[in-house]
């Protein structure tokens, strides 16, 4: 744990719970994508490539939230934003054009297969990051 300097606050409190949730999804999404791509990429290349992309975004968000420093904060901002856009876009497309997504990804149907956690997670992440940046500005 590092000394809490400006811009280098350690991840504390609810942020740690968020990191744990993100870590679970990072592992789930990356493993799922690895299996899909290794065993049957040809069946649904778009869906599986998206799975892999989602997995990488989760890994980046986990690291960005867990590590300290402004670079990691920016990475977390970017990852959570991309994730929110991703789950909304893929969620909508998967419902509108089911044929493009024959096999589901974490983001299909707004993450229904995962209890809609993929939809809630980026919102929580962005709220947490926002409160953090407000706190550091006030300090």
């Amino acid at each position: 744990m590092s000394a809490a300097g400006p811009g280098a606050r350690r991840t504390s409190g609810l942020g740690r719970v968020l990191v744990a949730l993100y870590a679970v999804f990072a592992v789930a999404a990356v493993s799922r994508a690895s299996v899909q791509i290794a065993t049957r990429f040809g069946e649904a290349p778009l869906a599986y490539a998206l799975s892999a992309f989602a997995g990488l975004v989760y890994v980046l968000a986990t690291l960005g939230l867990a590590r300290t420093g402004s670079g990691w904060r920016r990475a977390a901002w970017a990852a959570c934003t991309v994730e929110l856009l991703g789950v909304l876009t893929v969620g909508t497309l998967s419902l509108a054009d089911a044929r493009a997504f024959p096999d589901s990804t974490v983001w299909s149907a707004y993450g229904r297969g995962y209890g809609f956690v993929p939809l809630v997670l980026p919102v929580l992440g962005l709220v947490y990051l926002r409160s953090g940046s407000r706190r550091s500005r006030a300090a």
Partner: peptide
């Protein structure tokens, strides 16, 4: 491991 690294309430 992640819980024990910070013994705060939400952790």
């Amino acid at each position: 491991f992640w819980t024990l690294a910070e013994r705060s309430r939400p952790s």
